[in-house]
Structure formats: C-alpha cells, structure tokens
Design a protein around this nucleic acid. Structure first.
Lengths: 124, 124
DNA sequence: AAATATTGATTACAATTGTAGTCTTAACTA
DNA sequence: TAGTTAAGACTACAATTGTAATCAATATTT
C-alpha cells in the first residue's frame, strides 16, 4: 500500500466508520468535525482510489467507497514505522516517555498491566 | 517548530550524534549508512535552518550546525501526535498491538514492568 | 422539454519534499 | 600568480499534498 497522507487518513477514518459509504455520507461524517469542502473530499477520495487505499462500487450515478485495508492493520504499520525510525524498533523508550511525563492515568497503567499479564500467560 | 520531514529527521539524527558539527562531518556520519549526495544533505541542512530546526555558527568558510531542540523532545512530540491521531490519545491500544502481535521479547516485557513499577512508586 | 442541480472527472495551483546541479567566492596548490 | 578546490547560495524539477474550481454527463424539477 502506498503512503497515505495525514489528511487522507482522516478521510479513511470516515470510511472505516461504516462502508460501503457514498461520497455524500463520507462528507457528512467528516463535516461533523472538519469543515472540508466537498470538492476537497472528493479529490482525496479519488487520490486514494488511485493509490489503492480504497475502492468503490458504482450505484446509479454515485460511488460507494470501501477501504482496502483494516484500520488496525494501518495504524499498526504506522506505529511500527515510527518506533523503528525513532526508537530503533524498541517499544519501551516510547512508553518510558509517557510514563515519565505524567501523561498516564491510573486506568492507563491498569490496562498496561493487564496487557503484560496477558503476554505472560500466553508466553513466559 | 515547523514540520520536519522523515528525511530531514535523518539528517538531524546525524547532528544529534554530536554538535556543533560541520557539514562535512554530518555528511560523513550519514554516509556510513545512507548513500546521500553531498548536495542533497546541504540542501536539507539549509531547509532545516530556514525552518529553525537547527542553526549554525560560521568558522572560517565552514558552518557548524547544532539542533535547536533535543531528540527526546522531538520524538516525544511525534509519538504523542501519532497516538493522538490514531488512538484517540490513548497509549494502551498501541501497546496492545505490540503485545498481541508477538513483537515483544521477555526483556521488553521486563522493561515495561519496570516502568510501571516506577510509575506506581512515584504515583499510586 | 427546458432549466437546474448533482456526480464524478479533469484541471489548477502554490507549498513541500526528494534529489541534485550550477554559480560565486574564497582558499589552496602548482 | 593562475588554476583548481571546496563551501555555501541559488536554481531546478518532478512528485506529492492541500485545497478547491471548472467541465461533462446525468437526474430532477418546473
């Protein structure tokens, strides 16, 4: 899958919310938070079709778009890429940043502990 | 600080390795792993000066560059940005990905546990 | 049926990015 | 001192990105 820009990602988000989705639906979903011009969104949709990030089926005059990869797949790939580039592929330096900067709540810590327990159950 | 591209970040890495650093030094450091043309690196240095990501002091005919922000500061900002955009600002969904995908070693888990213990000592 | 509106396709256009090449000037070398 | 290097400045140029406007074809509304 080719690179997709931050803006394109936001359009993809709207598609992941539910698909196949018409351009109109996508525009409406986006406009709940972002005042993007209809033409702008359509351009982005077009570009993503060319990049094979999404495809569409034609129904009458309208197109209904669907993603060509799952949100999880994409976010994971991006996360790995960032961690690769900035932390030599190691996760803990990133987590360390958060832990030390007081960005985490008690609940966040609980979740992390659960994840670790899970890992230890599955492995270790 | 303006946006800096992935390529620019790699040049910055070379500067963070030790500074002030001359263009020559930076180019040499980079060329240990990346076959970038001298002119290319100089262009990137120039752009980063304009973006105020780095500055320089002139010594004779040469420039000696220094970063205008710390590596940690930058990587943390980028990490937060990604987590904001992809995981609604929550860290654990990202960690979850890694835990579940068998990307972590025993040592990674140990480090995470230590971080959590540290947090609990400081807070909790 | 004629006018209007709606869809997508095509075109636009400046800013950024990757990747250098050329120009100018100062320094070194023969 | 004249020619050659080496530094940085300036220029280049296509691809991508953000942000639409215009065009063409089809529906919908009078």
């Amino acid at each position: 899958m080719t690179e997709i820009s931050k803006t394109e990602f936001e359009v993809l988000e709207a598609i992941w919310q539910g698909h196949p989705a018409s351009a109109q639906q996508i525009i409406e979903r986006l406009n709940e938070t972002k005042p993007w011009h209809e033409k702008t969104v359509k351009t982005l949709l077009n570009r993503m079709v060319k990049k094979e990030a999404i495809n569409f089926e034609k129904v009458q005059r309208s197109y209904f778009y669907s993603p060509l990869f799952a949100r999880d797949e994409y976010t994971f790939k991006e996360s790995k890429s960032l961690i690769e580039r900035m932390f030599s592929g190691r996760l803990s330096p990133l987590v360390s940043h958060f832990v030390k900067s007081d960005e985490l709540t008690k609940d966040d810590i609980s979740e992390l502990k659960d994840l670790i327990n899970q890992w230890e159950k599955d492995n270790g």
